[in-house]
């Protein structure tokens, strides 16, 4: 048994630590991807108008 419970808690083997690191990295990549995806989908759903500054129309700015 590699994961041993003693006074120090569960002690992971080197192999388990490597696996955990790879899993953590994969989760981080997936979450980053989802953040970007939701941002892009929000822009797409709101349409190109969302990029314009709110407030008065352009002609009023000139006046």
């Amino acid at each position: 048994m590699n994961a041993m419970a003693d006074d120090k808690g569960v002690v992971l083997s080197e192999e388990q630590k490597k696996s955990r690191k790879r899993r953590s990295l994969a989760i981080a990549l997936v979450l980053t991807f989802l953040v970007i995806l939701f941002y892009v989908v929000t822009i797409v759903k709101l349409g190109p108008g969302v990029m314009k500054k709110s407030g008065l129309p352009a002609i009023s700015v000139i006046v």
């Binding site: 048994m1 590699n2 994961a3 992971l12 192999e15 388990q16 696996s19 955990r20 899993r23 994969a26």
Partner: peptide, 12 residues
Amino acid sequence: ESLSGFAGVEDY
């Protein structure tokens, strides 16, 4: 259960 912790990304 004893092997829990060894699963790689490729297993998921």
